[in-house]
Structure formats: structure tokens, C-alpha cells
């Protein structure tokens, strides 16, 4: 006799419960109880059990078990998968091309060309000698310990994902700043994206795309990293001095003129702060994305964990930290340059 039998007897649902009862496979808990030698049903009656799905199923086979619920979700997702792929596959395909292209480009470029290019980019963004020198030191360190290739892979992925996040995020942020309704609708989505544990992003994506496709990790990284740039674009534009906006209106500026001449330039320090955050978050995600075949330093960390190769893991971990530091320094230097210009003016 299972718990809660009395309930279904009392309310007269016994006939409904047993209508097409078949013997379902035992749950793991029941199996364990049986193998321990006790009678599962008796053990259950011993305490006052919470009427969970599994317990109720024991009393009334018409009620499903919890594993039916997860199976239902999985089947629903699999059923919708083919239709979703028809829509999502072509849309996201360029992402795969971009990632593969960037990876190939970063690796095909010889080191004696790549390092000067990166140093020039660092100088162009930061206009700071110490920062550029530090970037040079880190790149040489990577090359010296034979981690140059993996570092370039990680950098390529961060580069593509950050660029796309900015290209998509800034327009969304502009849209949000123009309409309170849009802001109310989008903010909860951003909150969700930011609070969702990073691993959870990967689950639906693995079902949708095959693990060998680069867009799988590309999408995961972009979804995670796009949030700050959207938020700070919206905030930056909303913080633009209302008097200046009023002056722009009073002289008959069009919406477009106002956006390009007033709002975006004045919001630039905030947008740059968002870009800095986006870079850091895509770097954080690229490590986790190594679980779904993203190449780069993350793979070495994963190897360190899986094979207990302590040294490999530590070196790769330090490499990631160094990469994070140079990306942060360069983008912060660029930000403070923009900020200072804004204030000097």
C-alpha cells in the first residue's frame, strides 16, 4: 500500500486512477530501497511524505512521475527543434563564418606581423606608452611559453564576439533610450541573461546546433556579453543633459542629427564603459565555452581539470588572466581618454 491511497479512496477517484494502470518501471529511490532489503512501500508509510509527483504516482498510477515531466520538456524541445533550425540556422550562419574566418586569420598571420599589428592597435586605442609596453611584454611571454597560438584563438573569438555585441547592442540601447515601453520590456530580458548561470546558456544551444559548429559558442558568448553595452548605451543617452537636448530641438535638429551630433557623442564615455565590460564578459565566457568546442586557452584549462594536469591548467589560467588584464587596460585607457576629452571640452 502506498501513501495517500486513502485520499484517492476517500474522494472516489480510485476507478480513475486504476483505469489503465500499467506497471511502470521503478524509480531509482524505489530500486535502492528494494535492494537494501526493505519493502519500499512500507518504508514510505513510515514517515509523513510530501505529496510529490512520484509519491502520488505510487498511490494513483494515473498521475505522472517527475521523470515524465523532464521527458515531456525534452520531447517538446526536440519536436520544435527542426522548425527552429530552419529559421535560426541561416540567420546565425554568418557568425560561424566570421568566427572561423577570424580564427584562421589570426593564426595564419605570422607572429612577426601579428604582434606589431596588435601593438599598433593597443597604441591607437590607448595612446599610452606604458600600456602598450605592457601589451608587448604579455604577447612576448605567450610566445615564449608556446601559448601564442591558443592565445590568438581566444583573442580572435573575443574580437569577433565583442564587435558583434557592440554592433547589435548599441542600436538596441538607442531604441531603449527612446521609448520607456521598450525599456520596460527589454530590462527583464537583460536581467535574465545576466543572472542565468553561464552553463545554462549552453544547454538549449547544444540541442539546436551541432557541437562542431562555431556559432554554438559564438551565440552563447554574445548573449552573455551583450548585456552591459545595451544597458550603458541606454543609460548614457538618457543621462545626456536635458538642456542640451532642448537646445538641439529649439534649433530644429532632426532626430537623426540629434542622435549623431548630440546624444551619441555625449553618451560615448558610458558606451565605452559598456564596451569594456562586454570585452571582459566575453573573455570570461570563452573559457566556459571551451566545453562546447571553443578553441583557445579555455581548452587547456579544461584539459587541466579533466586529466588532472595541474601545471597545464595553471599556466593556461594565468594566460587568461594576463589576456584579461591587457584587454582591460587598453579599453580602460581608451575610455579615460574619451572621458578626459569630454571634460577638457
Amino acid at each position: 500500500m502506498a501513501a495517500y491511497d486513502w485520499f484517492f479512496d476517500a474522494v472516489g477517484l480510485r476507478a480513475w486512477c486504476d483505469a489503465d494502470a500499467v506497471d511502470t518501471p521503478m524509480s531509482m529511490a524505489e530500486l535502492l530501497a528494494t535492494t537494501r532489503g526493505g519493502d519500499a512501500a512500507n518504508a514510505e508509510e513510515g514517515g509523513f511524505l510530501f505529496p510529490s509527483l512520484d509519491v502520488l504516482h505510487g498511490a494513483c498510477p494515473a498521475i505522472g512521475q517527475t521523470r515524465d515531466l523532464t521527458a515531456f520538456l525534452e520531447e517538446g524541445f526536440l519536436a520544435a527543434r527542426d522548425e527552429l533550425r530552419i529559421v535560426l540556422d541561416p540567420i546565425t550562419q554568418p557568425l560561424s563564418w566570421m568566427l572561423d574566418g577570424a580564427l584562421a586569420l589570426f593564426q595564419a598571420t605570422p607572429w612577426w606581423l601579428m604582434i606589431p599589428i596588435l601593438l599598433f592597435a593597443a597604441w591607437f586605442a590607448s595612446r599610452s606608452r606604458p600600456v602598450t609596453a605592457f601589451v608587448a611584454a604579455v604577447l612576448i611571454f605567450f610566445a615564449a611559453i608556446d601559448h601564442y597560438d591558443v592565445a590568438m584563438q581566444t583573442l580572435a573569438i573575443v574580437f569577433v564576439c565583442t564587435s558583434l555585441s557592440v554592433a547589435i547592442g548599441v542600436p538596441i540601447g538607442i531604441g531603449m533610450s527612446r521609448s520607456d515601453l521598450a525599456q520596460r520590456l527589454i530590462v527583464p530580458i537583460l536581467d535574465l541573461l545576466q543572472t542565468l548561470p553561464t552553463f545554462v546558456y549552453l544547454i538549449p544551444l547544444i540541442f539546436l546546433f551541432s557541437v562542431t559548429e562555431s556559432k554554438l559558442y559564438g551565440i552563447a558568448i554574445i548573449l552573455y556579453a551583450i548585456v552591459p553595452v545595451i544597458r550603458l548605451t541606454d543609460l548614457g543617452i538618457r543621462l545626456v543633459d536635458r538642456d542640451v537636448i532642448e537646445a538641439a530641438d529649439a534649433f530644429g535638429m532632426t532626430k537623426r542629427q540629434k542622435l549623431w551630433q548630440v546624444q551619441l557623442p555625449l553618451a560615448l564615455p558610458n558606451i565605452m564603459a559598456g564596451v569594456n565590460q562586454t570585452i571582459m564578459m566575453s573573455l570570461a565566457m570563452v573559457v566556459i565555452a571551451s566545453l562546447v568546442s571553443a578553441p583557445g586557452l579555455g581548452v587547456l584549462v579544461l584539459r587541466g581539470i579533466r586529466n588532472l594536469e595541474l601545471g597545464v591548467g595553471i599556466v593556461a589560467g594565468i594566460g587568461i588572466v594576463l589576456l584579461a588584464v591587457i584587454l582591460d587596460r587598453v579599453s580602460k585607457a581608451a575610455l579615460s581618454r574619451v572621458d578626459k576629452q569630454g571634460k577638457a571640452r
Partner: peptide, 22 residues
């Protein structure tokens, strides 16, 4: 209205409202 604001009326503001980046 835009034409009026451009061609007929200009405005001077208490807090100047100049574009700081220009």
C-alpha cells in the same frame, strides 16, 4: 514646425546649453 525653429526663431538658454564636445 522644424522650419519655424530653423528659420524664424532662435533661442538663448539660461544654462547656455552649448555642445561640450564641439
Amino acid at each position: 514646425l522644424q522650419k519655424l525653429r530653423r528659420k524664424t526663431m532662435s533661442m538663448v538658454f539660461q544654462k547656455f546649453a552649448l555642445l561640450p564636445h564641439r
